[in-house]
Amino acid sequence: MANERVIPWQPTVIAGPKQALLVTPETAELMIKKAKRPLFILGPLVKEDPLRTYATKIAEKWNLPVVTTADAYKPFYEKGLNPTAYGVVEIVNLLKDPEWQGVDGKGQHDLVIFLGCIYYIGSQGLSSLKHYAPHLKTLTICKFFHSNADASFPNLKDEEWFKYLEKMGEVG
């Protein structure tokens, strides 16, 4: 099927007519560049290498404040990041409040990049932000297409996904 890459990874998470915009590493980078207050959310599915390294490099390259969900804090702290730990539902709850001052206390974020949250709970969180957080955009760079995000990578095979992430973390 030609469009298999943009059918949500779990196809029944399709929620309605609005679908995520398909992005490549280049367009994802443009979104990050354009953002004034981006936030990088890292979930437990990327806490092991090589994904941990790819994620860390992206955070470092773009100087992104990082939130970890579930038990992803420890591996990323050990990798040299200084993340803030929240439950995925807790951080989404904070992000949907336009008055929240962000992880650094300097103001609400305008772009949230998700990587490595469990697909279906991630999808629910993205749905929440789609409905109730018009003040920010969501981008997912998981290996799965997330239709509830504003922008998402397509469904990818591991090798392809690793290349995408590597590219986003390359300096220079």
């Binding site: 929620a15 309605g16 007519p17 989404v92 709850n93 969180g125 929440s128 789609k130 409905h131």
Partner: peptide
């Protein structure tokens, strides 16, 4: 209450389906 819609739409009556996204 923290809401995470499972579906953007309501399909409960014949007015609909209604898309409730914003």
């Amino acid at each position: 209450p923290f809401y995470a819609p499972f579906c953007d739409m309501c399909c409960l009556c014949t007015f609909g389906k209604c898309d409730l996204l914003n």
